[in-house]
């Protein structure tokens, strides 16, 4: 018994040490960002900068919400990112199920085609994409992003979901099929509950992929009423000048939804294995 307590303490110590190191590494740049968002302009740049500034201020946040159209950008981004996430995850769940569990000619071709769409970076695709979109009259319309963003989100979702679905033992589904479920029912009752932690992760990342997208948003939207958060943040950059207070405070605000979403997703879909077929 003594030995197992010792092992437990050793394990906990290791966990906390690793956790601490990882947190410092992750948070240091974040700290610098948050610190800058609370630093008065006159202390923004200093020689031999210090970890803790001599003065703090909330004025950048105040200015951000009162003087700039930032909230409108947030609203647009939420609209786009949430819709794109729901659409893409739903489409991908169906597609991935088909690709992992059903057998039909052309399956391998489809599987490869999905990921081949990533072979050219957005940095060279945005011009042909803009040309195509404006042909449908969708330029300067945020809804164009609803059409375009699935192209960056769906391949990711499909591939991650395929890998999660593959990890689920086939026997579980076969049992459901024998019990008289059809394919879609077994997807809903067996596969999805087991894969739900994975789906939570996929949804969160799908959300951040569209939330942080920049280049398509830049060319496809023009007026503030249509534009998203990333454009709003970049607009605090002017040639060789940057309004650091606003740039950093807006970035801090913009990173909140993804983290929040991850937690919500975890909470809603925590059921995981417990809800699955294994009793």
């Amino acid at each position: 018994m003594r030995r197992s307590t010792y092992v437990k303490i050793r394990k906990l110590t290791a966990l906390y040490v690793i956790g601490l190191v990882a947190s410092v590494w992750t948070l240091f740049p974040i700290y610098w960002l948050v610190k800058s968002s609370l630093t008065p302009n006159k202390l923004m740049y200093t020689p031999q900068p210090k970890l803790i500034p001599a003065e703090w201020t909330f004025s950048h946040y105040q200015e951000l919400f009162t003087k700039s159209p930032f909230l409108g950008f947030v609203k647009n981004s939420l609209y786009i990112a949430l819709l794109v996430t729901v659409i893409s995850v739903a489409i991908s769940v169906l597609g991935s199920y088909s690709l992992t569990r059903l057998r039909f000619p052309g399956r391998g071709f489809m599987l490869k085609s999905i990921i081949y769409t990533y072979l050219l970076p957005v940095a060279v695709l945005f011009i042909p994409m803009y040309v195509a979109i404006s042909r449908y009259g969708l330029n300067n319309n945020k809804n164009a992003l609803l059409v375009v963003y699935p192209t960056i989100v769906v391949p990711y979702c499909c591939y991650m979901l395929i890998s999660y679905f593959k990890a689920i033992p086939k026997e579980l589904e076969e049992a459901a099929l024998i019990d008289g479920c059809n394919r879609l029912q077994s997807l809903a009752k067996v596969i999805l509950p087991i894969a739900s932690p994975g789906i939570a992760v996929v949804s969160t990342f799908a959300f951040t992929l569209s939330w942080n997208e920049y280049l398509y948003a830049l060319v496809l939207t023009t007026t503030p009423a249509q534009q998203t958060v990333t454009i709003g943040i970049a607009s605090f950059n002017f040639g060789d000048q940057t309004i650091w207070g606003l740039l950093t405070s807006s970035s801090v605000i913009a990173s909140i939804p993804a983290v929040l979403l991850y937690f919500l997703a975890q909470r809603f879909l925590k059921t995981g294995l417990a809800a699955g077929g294994v009793k």
Partner: peptide, 21 residues
């Protein structure tokens, strides 16, 4: 839970902001 939240944050930032920081 806290550690998970902390570890997620860099992904939640836009690439531009991470780079300039």
């Amino acid at each position: 839970g806290l550690l998970r939240a902390v570890l997620l944050v860099p992904w939640a930032l836009s690439g531009m902001v991470s780079a300039v920081t």
